[in-house]
């Protein structure tokens, strides 16, 4: 199973990059004594070199160290907010698909309403009323990203609930929760996995946007959005490293999660497999 997955180059790249990033966030703070907040004013805006491999910013802080510490925040936001979305979206989708009728109608209309707002504006609206910090950011991203998941899971659940083994389970009278989570969930796990992986990428991106706008993680904490903000005034000048490296980190990380998601889709979607053979 794993071997087969890694034969897919998209998954291989995505997983390798993510694993490398996670590994670096653990190793670098142990090995390099520099703190992401430590200023070194005489060395401000020094270009990438042997001493600072990604250069320093306007306050002389090491960009590489800040990106590595920022990765912790970004990955944390990605995983936690997707977990929140999963915990809300999957049960609702299963329930809507299984129960049908007014329950389905109610849940899907809420989903429709949520999906009509562009999520970034919804998040901006909510976050202006809250204190901008990492907990609120994770909560808001999680609470606004479940509707797509619900719609996807509900569609799969609709097809699964017509199967004879669900009828058999109903005749056994084994409780709705058990039917939903033991009989249906394993049969809709493929779209859940795919959507969740793609969701991590988009959560990381949303967090960067919020931090860039000053509504996410607050400076001087290094988050990728903050690092970009601190380099904003130097765009177009000679200090290219202040933009390129943090933007590159965001780009590669989001790309990795999207590639894993796409790879999983190719691997798990029976229709695609069939098309490839034929």
């Amino acid at each position: 199973m794993m071997k087969k997955l890694f034969k897919n180059k998209m998954i291989l790249f995505g997983v390798s990059f993510t694993a490398l990033l996670i590994l670096l966030t653990f190793i670098i703070p142990q090995v390099v004594p520099l703190s992401p907040l430590q200023q070194d004013l005489p060395a401000r805006l020094s270009s990438p070199g042997a001493k600072h491999i990604m250069g320093t910013d306007a306050l002389g802080r090491d960009v590489f160290i800040r990106i590595i510490y920022g990765a912790r925040i970004s990955l944390l936001v990605g995983f936690v907010s997707v977990t929140i979305a999963l915990l809300i979206g999957v049960p609702l989708g299963l329930l809507a698909g299984f129960h049908g009728g007014w329950v389905d109608n109610l849940i899907m209309r809420i989903v429709d309403i949520m999906l009509c707002f562009p999520s970034i504006f919804l998040i901006l609206m909510v976050i202006t009323f809250l204190e901008p910090n990492i907990i609120n950011v994770m909560a808001v991203i999680g609470l606004t990203s479940w509707p797509g998941l619900t719609r996807y899971v509900r569609g799969e659940a609709l097809s699964v609930r017509k199967r004879d083994y669900i009828s058999a389970a109903k005749m056994m009278n084994i409780g709705r929760v058990r039917i939903l989570f033991i009989h249906m969930l394993p049969n809709v796990i493929a779209p859940v996995l795919i959507t969740a992986t793609l969701g991590i990428g988009s959560a990381i991106l949303t967090e960067s946007v919020l931090s860039f706008l000053g509504l996410g993680v607050q400076p001087p904490s290094p988050s990728w959005g903050n690092i970009l903000t601190s380099g904003k005034n130097y765009m177009g000048s000679r200090a290219w490293w202040l933009i390129l490296f943090p933007a590159g980190a965001i780009f590669l990380t989001v790309l990795s999660f999207n590639l894993i998601g796409e790879g999983l889709r190719d691997h798990l979607d029976p229709h695609k497999k069939f098309l490839k053979k034929g």
Binding site: Y165, A168, A169, H183, P186, N187
Partner: peptide
Amino acid sequence: AGSLNPKL
């Protein structure tokens, strides 16, 4: 085949 849950 359809009356037995494929994942159990």
